[in-house]
């Protein structure tokens, strides 16, 4: 019975988070971080640096899906914002858009090869394909509305979980040395990637950026005594179009960053 009560407790914590935090806030400046870290000098000290590079950030719900959700949202948001460039083959946005559409089309075969059942993933691929096709006529506000609907938002997230899981399962040889506490990649994916609300560690971030071939730059804010956040870039080797997803990491949580327009 103990098992049940732990799960019940976790459910309650999750429900509380869902009531308190939206899936995404509007883009905001960093003043709320200043309030949040008023009595936390190491974090406080890094805010001016963030302000020098980024105009603001969008908070996302801390329900364990934050990296996955921020990644897919930011990808769609940047493509929608730059939809006027999508028909120009020289634009990085158009190159990323074509590449992603192709990847989603191919993802059924990849998920199947990784051992997933078509009845389980087809609805997810169908929705993502349809949303991608609609990008040239979509507004940011429609994307924001999508992420106010829990089922639609969770469908975006689950699609990325499938992709990360399939990538790791199909590259088990390379990555099985990096899973801690699990006998193999399959059991790691079964427990840490496939279920919703499981947090994303560095291994999943590597898998996500490798599988999508999209670059993610993450500013790590932590307790060290420097006045700058630490930038890390994934995948480690990237030679694709000039397109990036920007994120802010604070212990246990990811949010989307918006760079200054240069």
């Amino acid at each position: 019975m103990e098992d049940f009560s732990i799960i019940k407790q976790q459910d309650e914590i999750l429900r509380e988070i869902e009531e308190r935090q939206p899936m995404f806030t509007p883009v905001q400046d960093f003043s709320s971080l200043e309030v949040e870290y008023a009595s936390n000098p190491p974090f406080q000290a890094k805010i001016p640096y963030l302000q020098s590079k980024y105009s603001g950030f969008r908070r996302t719900r801390g329900d364990g899906n934050c990296f996955y959700r921020s990644f897919i949202f930011s990808l769609f948001e940047q493509l929608i914002q730059n939809k006027s460039h999508l028909s120009n083959p020289d634009s990085p946005y158009s190159q990323i858009y074509s590449a992603i559409k192709q990847k989603v089309l191919d993802s059924g075969d990849i998920l199947n090869a990784a051992g997933f059942l078509p009845i389980c993933y087809e609805d997810f691929i169908d929705m993502i394909s349809a949303k991608l096709e609609m990008i040239p006529t979509t507004e940011i506000s429609q994307l924001e509305d999508d992420f106010k609907d829990k089922i639609i938002a969770d469908t975006y997230v689950m699609y990325t979980r499938f992709i990360v899981s399939a990538f790791l399962r199909l590259h088990a040889d390379e990555y099985s040395g990096f899973v801690e506490g699990y006998p193999d990649i399959v059991s790691f994916c079964n427990s840490e990637v496939d279920p919703m609300n499981r947090e994303c560690e560095q291994l999943q971030i590597i898998a996500m950026t490798e599988a999508f071939q999209i670059k993610a730059e993450i500013e790590y804010m932590d307790r060290n005594d420097r006045t700058e956040t630490t930038l890390m870039s994934f995948p480690f080797e990237y030679t694709g179009p000039d397109f990036k997803i920007h994120m802010l990491y604070r212990p246990g949580h990811y949010d989307i960053l918006y760079p200054n327009r240069s």
Binding site: I7, N190, S191
Partner: peptide, 10 residues
């Protein structure tokens, strides 16, 4: 059926 449930199951 509980904590490890995923939409990947049927």
């Amino acid at each position: 059926l509980k904590s490890d449930w995923s939409p990947a199951w049927s």
